[in-house]
């Protein structure tokens, strides 16, 4: 039981991170119908920007708590802004010129952009992984190992931070999409881009903003990943990206709550699989889920079914 509880906590934490990345996939897929392959690498860039900021500002766990929180918020904002510029640039250079063209072309440029980002970071930041001293050590001990297993269940402060930040962002973000004119513009572009532009919506700007929002959420995920795991390298984007995409598909691509739900499920599946079966095959578990969902339920959990028109 204690073991189960611990896995649950870990799974939800990991799932939150996946969910944040998945939103970027789901929004971009919803609006322009392409898999933004470079999104995982945008997440990685976001993590690096956070890392550099943390090291530059000398943020450590020994700071006074208030100052630490203030510094982290500042880092979060700057990192969101800078990562957004990366997301915007990728869209501007690699995708926008190909809008309305051949469907495979943006997929290839997306893979190309992913290669460029990975290798750029490898060159500029070095290939070695970057360990960071834990920023937020400690946590609550939920169970002192009283059970027969003697297992200690811990909920660390960093896990609380991740779950809280994700929840707040999700609520804010859903409101943004559902209530504002920007959200309306996005939804109209999803439905019919040509008609939207005829009705005076700046389609290019709306799409750019979608990438910017996706990238800023990915950068939050990057910072959370950094805080949680304490180590990053230039290659974290690929696997996290594929899993987040899996999450987006699992939840029903195009659906925001779906992305979050999918993220949580993938996080839980992965953690439980590692906890109960084998760590080596956790990726196989995630990928198999993806295949199974797509084969038997292509619209995902919360997506709308696609009707074949004859």
């Amino acid at each position: 039981m204690e073991y189960f509880l611990q896995q649950l906590i870990n799974g939800v934490t990991l799932g939150s991170i996946y969910g944040l990345i998945a939103i970027g996939y789901t929004m971009v897929y919803g609006i322009i119908g392409m898999i933004n392959f470079a999104h995982g690498d945008i997440f990685m860039v976001g993590a690096f920007i956070s890392l550099i900021l943390i090291v530059t500002l000398g943020v450590t766990a020994s700071m006074p708590l208030a100052l630490l929180i203030l510094a982290l918020i500042a880092i979060l904002i700057v990192s969101m802004a800078l990562t957004s510029v990366w997301g915007w640039t990728v869209e501007r250079i690699a995708y926008r010129p190909l809008r309305g063209s051949f469907r495979l072309a943006p997929l290839i440029t997306a893979i190309g952009a992913s290669i460029v980002l990975q290798n750029f970071v490898q060159i500029s930041q070095g290939a070695r992984n970057k360990p960071l001293q834990p920023l937020i050590p400690g946590g609550f001990t939920l169970s002192e190992g009283a059970g027969e297993s003697g297992f200690i269940v811990q909920l660390s402060y960093s896990q609380i931070l991740i779950i809280v930040v994700t929840t707040v962002l999700m609520i804010g973000f859903t409101t943004l999409i559902n209530k504002t004119s920007l959200g309306r513009a996005q939804r109209s572009c999803e439905q019919d881009r040509k008609m939207a532009s005829l009705l005076g919506i700046n389609v290019d700007r709306t799409i750019s903003l979608t990438f910017v929002m996706g990238a800023s959420l990915a950068s939050v995920a990057g910072l959370m990943f950094l805080i949680y795991y304490g180590v990053i390298d230039f290659y974290i984007g690929f696997l996290a990206g594929v899993k987040a995409f899996t999450a987006a598909v699992l939840g029903g691509i195009g659906s925001l709550p779906g992305a979050m739900l999918g993220g949580l499920l993938i996080g839980l599946i992965e953690t439980f699989w590692s906890g109960y079966f084998s760590v080596e095959y956790k990726d196989v578990a995630a990928f198999s889920i993806l295949a199974i969902v797509l084969i038997f339920m292509p619209e995902g959990l919360l997506g709308k079914p696609e009707v074949e028109k004859v």
């Binding site: 392409m34 898999i35 469907r103 995409f245 196989v284 990928f287 198999s288 295949a291 084969i295």
Partner: peptide, 27 residues
């Protein structure tokens, strides 16, 4: 099982299969 999927879904499932085979070979 996957060929009735369309477009990008097929792409992503084939990607997943590729990775599954690699991970199995690895482990």
């Amino acid at each position: 099982p996957v060929l009735r999927l369309r477009g990008d879904y097929l792409a992503i499932v084939t990607l997943a299969f590729g990775e599954i085979i690699r991970v199995v070979l690895l482990n």
